[in-house]
């Protein structure tokens, strides 16, 4: 019952009872009508086809990911046999002399990513709060598209702006020998992660029930107290997810960091080293892959770098997903 679809009014929701109690075409509701059989079968055939199509698409996507991973393994794992582990774990990346220390690259990537996250989080959350809670509606209309446009700027362009504007500014402003530093990379990556963080946090704040705001205000809180002590804590896990997504974009980013971080493979040791050059995993792969002989040790090591990056990104995404999962579970519990 309730699932038969009348061919005349396909657009009507099939299982919603007609408020008048009468079917539009005048036929009584029920399964006993012989004319009903053919459309019923057509619909179910269509459904089966759709289901299959979706299944195939889904599975092929998974296969593709698996294949990429296998390819990475295939090309990257030999590096661990060709180069002694002590070399790979070393502090010097100098392929011409056979030194393949991954530490400076990992350190460079982590430094820039964490730095970018630390910059993007407060800025992004503040912007989202402003857009969602404080700005008058016309301000919202202007700001939202701007954030979206920001997300669409190609990373080459951001890198270009970095080289031409941001780096010189830092060099003269901070009085350092070169503007192409880890810090420059952080700032630009934060800029790139910002739109993601802003839009996700904004969505999160949107889903915090209006009654929470009322509850806060009704307790005699100011608007700011309501935001900082109720809305943000209530959206905490969503905000973390936003950060992870932003970071996910930042850690895989190649072009911008290659252009603005100076690419010197050194391990940062003191806090001041954020104003020195670093080299990230992505930039290394992009810069060197074109020059290595296929099948050489250097070639395999570059894939090993890619593999490492893959694992790190995977872990970050997994963490994000598990947070989202926890959030839905809690939401379900709240509703029950």
């Amino acid at each position: 019952m309730g699932l038969e679809v009348n061919p005349v009014d396909q657009e009507e929701k099939p299982d919603r009872p007609d408020p008048t109690g009468l079917d539009r075409v005048g036929a009584p509701m029920g399964d006993d009508h012989p004319d009903r059989d053919s459309p019923k079968q057509r619909v179910s055939l269509f459904e089966v086809l759709m289901e299959r199509a979706i299944q195939v698409t889904g599975i092929s996507t998974m296969l593709l990911v698996a294949l990429i991973f296998l390819f990475l393994l295939w090309e990257g794992v030999p590096a661990f046999f060709e180069v002694p582990l002590s070399n790979l774990a070393g502090a010097r990346w100098y392929p011409i002399e056979g030194l393949y220390g991954l530490l400076p690259l990992i350190a460079g990537s982590l430094l820039i990513t964490i730095g970018a996250a630390l910059l993007a989080l407060p800025l992004g959350v503040a912007t989202a709060i402003f857009i969602a809670e404080i700005a008058p509606s016309w301000g919202r209309e202007i700001l939202k598209p701007i954030v979206e446009i920001l997300a669409g700027i190609p990373s080459v362009v951001i890198g270009f702006v970095g080289i031409l504007v941001v780096a010189p500014l830092f060099r003269t402003g901070l009085n350092i020998p070169t503007g192409l530093t880890a810090f420059t990379g952080m700032v630009l990556l934060a800029w790139m992660a910002l739109p993601t963080v802003v839009s996700v946090v904004e969505d999160v704040l949107d889903t915090v029930p209006k009654t929470y705001r009322d509850a806060g205000l009704a307790l005699g809180m100011t608007r700011w107290q309501t935001i900082s002590r109720i809305l943000v804590p209530a959206g905490k896990s969503g905000i973390l997810t936003a950060l992870m997504l932003g970071v996910g974009r930042a850690i895989g980013e190649t072009m911008t960091v290659m252009m603005v971080t100076g690419n010197a493979p050194s391990i940062p040791v003191s806090p001041l080293d954020i104003f020195a050059s670093v080299r990230t995993m992505t930039a290394t792969i992009a810069a060197e892959m074109g020059e290595v002989a296929q099948g050489s040790t250097h070639y395999h090591v570059l894939f090993a770098v890619g593999l490492t990056l893959f694992v790190i990104t995977f872990v970050v995404n997994l963490a994000a997903a598990s947070i989202v999962f926890r959030r839905t579970r809690r939401a379900e519990r709240m509703l029950s």
């Binding site: 029930p209 009654t211 929470y212 009322d214 509850a215 806060g216 205000l217 009704a218 307790l219 005699g220 109720i230 209530a234």
Partner: peptide, 14 residues
């Protein structure tokens, strides 16, 4: 708002 407390239809525990 502290003098006039309000309780809503759906409980809103913080």
């Amino acid at each position: 708002r502290r003098r006039l407390g309000i309780v809503f239809a759906r409980p809103v525990p913080l």
